[in-house]
Structure formats: C-alpha cells, structure tokens
Design a protein around this nucleic acid. Sequence first.
DNA 1: CTGTTAGCGCGTTCAA
DNA 2: TTGAACGCGCTAACAG
Lengths: 335, 335
Amino acid sequence: MKLTIKDIARIANVSPTTVSRVMNGKTEYVTQETQERVLKVIEETNYQPNQIARSLVTRETRTIGLVLPDIRNPFFTELSRGIEDYANQLGYFVILCNTDHKSEKEIQYISLLKDKYIDGLIVVSSLENPISHIKKITTENTPIVLIDHKANDEEINCVYFNNYQGGYLATKHLIDLGHKNIGCITGPLHVQSAVERFNGYKDALRDNNISFKDEFIFQGNYRYEDGIESAKYYKSIGVTSIFASNDLMALGANQKLAELGVKIPEDISIVGLDNITPIGISDSFLTTINQPFYEMGKTACSLLLDQLKGLIQTNKNIQFDATLVLGKSTAHPKK
Amino acid sequence: MKLTIKDIARIANVSPTTVSRVMNGKTEYVTQETQERVLKVIEETNYQPNQIARSLVTRETRTIGLVLPDIRNPFFTELSRGIEDYANQLGYFVILCNTDHKSEKEIQYISLLKDKYIDGLIVVSSLENPISHIKKITTENTPIVLIDHKANDEEINCVYFNNYQGGYLATKHLIDLGHKNIGCITGPLHVQSAVERFNGYKDALRDNNISFKDEFIFQGNYRYEDGIESAKYYKSIGVTSIFASNDLMALGANQKLAELGVKIPEDISIVGLDNITPIGISDSFLTTINQPFYEMGKTACSLLLDQLKGLIQTNKNIQFDATLVLGKSTAHPKK
DNA sequence: CTGTTAGCGCGTTCAA
DNA sequence: TTGAACGCGCTAACAG
C-alpha cells in the first residue's frame, strides 16, 4: 500500500501540515529538529507525495504540451530536444502530440490538452490562422508559444526564423562567388516561409544588379523529390548555381545532378537552407544556411516557463537569425 | 472562472452525482429526459471535467511515460511515433524523456514518472541490468514494457528484434551472391545486440563452410565514423564484401570507399542492418536488413495498454523478425 | 513554531 | 431513478 502524507505525519509524530511544510521548503517556521525528524522518516520510508493530489490544489501539473506536425521531420526532432532539455531541467515534463499537418488533429489535441491538463502549450501550427483558432479553444490564462509563426503586436508569444534573411544570405553567397545565373527552387508558395525565402532570393539579385529571370525558377514543395525533378531542368538551361529553398531539395538536386554527370560544385554550385545534418551524408558537404532549431526550441520553452511563473507579462516575438554554413557544394563559377 | 460539476448540476437542476453519471455513461439508472437535459447544459456551457480531480479518485491519468536514449536517433524517432500513434488513438498521452544513454538520468526519470504520475511505462534502457533496476524503483502494479531487451521467463514485458537473424540473413545474402571474403564491422561487443549480430555473421559462415578469419573483422561502435575508419583497412586487405552491423557504419564505409575510388557494388558489396532511411540518400541504395521500429513501438504500446486494462496478466516476450531489403549496394563478386 | 479545519473537483457509497 | 455525504491526498488559512 502506498504511503500518504498522513502516514508520514503519524510516524514522525507531527501533523500532515508540518510534513507538507518540510517537503515544500517552507521551513522558516519549522524547528531544525522537527524538520530533520520528518526528513528522516521521508528518507526511510522512501515516501513520494502524490503529484495528482498536489496538482489538484496547487493548480499546476508541471507538464507542458508540445503539438507539432511530425516528430520524424528532422527540424521538429531537434526542436523537441531543445524544448525537452530545457523543460526537464526545470522539472517539467513534455507531452508530445503529432498532428501530421492535419487541422482536425491539431484542434483536437489542443482541446484535449487544454488548460486542465497542462500548464502551458507550445505549438507548431498547421492551421491557416493559428492565433484565432488556438485562442478560441484555450482559455485566457493558458500560456502559449507559437513556433514558426509571426504575430502582430503582442497577441501571443512567437519564436520564428528569419526566412527572408536566409534566402538573401544564400543567394548573396553565390553572387559573391561570382555567379550570375542563379536558379532558385522555391518551396510551396502558399506557405509564408517559402514566400519569404523566395523574396530574399529576389532582393539579393536586385541589390546586386542581377536581373530576375523567370526561367531560373523551379517551384518545389520542400520535398527531396522536388530537388530530383529540378535537376534535369537546370542541367538543360545551363545555370551555374542553384539556391534550393531547403536542404532536402538541395540534396535531391545534388543527387540527381551527380547522376547526370554534372560535377558539384565545379559545374554547378548548390546552396541549401535549414542545415539539417542527415545521417550518411558526409558532414559539411552541403553549403547551407543554418536555422537554429535546438535554440529555437529552448527559447520557446524558456518563454513559456517565464510566463508560467509570472516573470513576464507581455507577449514577445523573437526572431532568429540566419547564418551561412560553408560546405563543399559551392565554388566560383568556371570562366 | 472555470465551470465545475457543481455548476452544471445547478444549471441543469440535478445533483452533481447525476451529472457524473451522465458523463461516465452510467446511464442505466438515469431517465432519458434528465440525461438529455444534462447533456444539453454540458454542450451549451462547453463544460469539460477537471482531469486532475478525476484522476485523483479514479487513479488513472491516461498518460504513459516513454523513456529512451535520444529521440534524434532515427530508430527512436520511428519507435516513438509507433507508440504515440497507438496511444493517442486510445486516448492516452505520452510523456517523452531523453536519457542520453545516462544511467542516472534514466533512473531519475523513471523515479519521477513513477506510479503516481503515469499509468504505465515504456523504456528503452541504457542500464546494465534494466529489469532489476527498474523493478526496484517502480512499484509492483506499474505496467512496464521494455524495448530492445529480452527477459527470462515472464519477469516483464519485452519487445525486441531478432538481431541474430539479422546478422545471419545479411551474411547469407552475401554468400548467396557468391562472396567468400566477407568482412564484418561489428558493433560494440559489450552490447547484447552487437554480439548477436556478430554471432549471426559467424554462424552463417559456418553453415556454408566458409572459414572465419580474424583479419576480416573490424570492431566498430555503431557510429558513422567507424564505417569511415574501416574503409581504408578493408580496401587494403581485399575483401569482396562487407557486412556492417548497422546502417550508419555501412553508409560510412560506403562514403569513404567511394572516395578511395572503390566502386560499390562492383568492387565491394556492402550490406547494412536496421533499414534507417536517411534523408538525402537515394532510396533503396543500401541493401540492408529491416528492423520494424514503428511496428515494435505499436506492439509495445498495445502490450502496455492491454495490461493496463487487465486484458492480459502474464508478461510476454515478443520477438520481431529480420527481413532482407534489396538495394544497389550488393552484387555478385567479380570473377 | 505547530496543528486543526477546510476545500481543490471529482467518483462512489448508501439511503431515500 | 436520484441525491447527500464522504473521501482521494494534498496545501492553505487560521488559530493557538
């Protein structure tokens, strides 16, 4: 049979309250003596308080919910470790929910997790209008952090990556190497991040007096296969370099181009974006733009816990910078 | 302010007990009429019962703990999705804890999660003697499933992969292709799975009258880098094929051998084990042995939940079979 | 400094 | 068929 606070109290010859006080460090009003006596009993009996009962009265579960599309996606794996490491360090547990990019699943999970079960919520949303949706199903007082989304004003806490800067830096790198014919594999252009990356590409060209050419654009969908598909096209039109809007497509293009006998980077330079480090690819092969997933997760979690503890009141928008990671997939164009 | 069962009772003009009965489907003794009235109020007020309070009396949290070394490892990512999909489908949440292969962290997590917070536990242990350790910190009645471990008798529920068969099949495949000089990159031989895979290799040779040669063995540590390191050695001693005890090492060896000008599979065939499908590697390149991570997770979870619900009493050991997955990294040896 | 009382929000007797 | 009373194990308010 499990021991309760009453048992400990009886054995230590004190009241349950005193035991509670000792456990919770409210030791200011407890004699050194009784304190030691209680601690000894707790130690000896290996007593652990019932968290459920405790939560019922304190109204905190020390558990946060993490809702994301799919943990198998390397971004989210890394992100989740950032979140979990931070949370666990502060004594919080993390409940993980995969939505598979489905709105119904996302809404259902959030609704289930809601304010009764968790202290806070971190969401990588797949909804069209996440803020209004999520605010509808959660209550005022549930702290929330949105990842990969940017809010207006201080509606909600947001942590996101500067996608525009990512596209800009990637393209600028190619320009700096001397490239003028620069292809761009875009992401799905109904998605914000893809548009921003694309805008970065366009502005980098403009700022360096290189004219934008429609035929250099290949619309992809962020998938490895899109990179594969683009390869034949780019080989045929003769660009000297390619900016792929994410690493998956960059690697796909690289793979297929190599198969087609195109030398990377001698014939065509490739730069990606995200800096996922897939197993089995020699490190530092791909030149890319780093997106600090782990750090973003950590920051999201710290933002959440700070709010939870009342350390901050206002919501924040925190943007993470893009940085260039040099690899072996880019070089000067051939003369 | 949050609504409680009392509020609903008052609004519907019944007692809290009746509301409780309606919510829990104990409707046998409730008039159709009152039932509808209560349901209507619940609907209108969007009332959701407090799970904490409920858990305090029912003694179930509908939450399970998942303790594993590192979610970033593709095996565990896949495994966790198998577990989560199954759990969520049945209305359970999953709390994820990464131990980074550290015994202290593992013990600490399990101890924290313990029987008060969760209904059951799934563990991929890094402990030397997981069963005795884990049984010590958990109580009798906490259902537990161990993954990647095999128990004697019915001490505990276990789900594991037939590593021996994996090593055997991989080696047999090379033999069937006509190879006689077959290298083996082993895993860390203080780990059970590595020993079993190695034994599979040895027995496959023996059963086919190929003598075991010490110089064909390269001891690795399951890391990509070990594969890289082994390449030079294998090139120098002139094997025609290599069985790598996991895919990571297989891919490492492949990478380095290619750089050294060795053609795969013409000069050297490579077969791996695990069937992880790393992003950026063309699908089906590597010939390997499939380990069904997702299925194993699902099975582990179903085992746990069955036990939770009292559907099964005895503990089970469930073994998963190895299957060959043909890729492009193996071929007949040159004459 | 310590203990008594009350109550968190539910499910579960037991009596009506 | 319904409801009043009790208790799950704990913390908080108030006395002493």
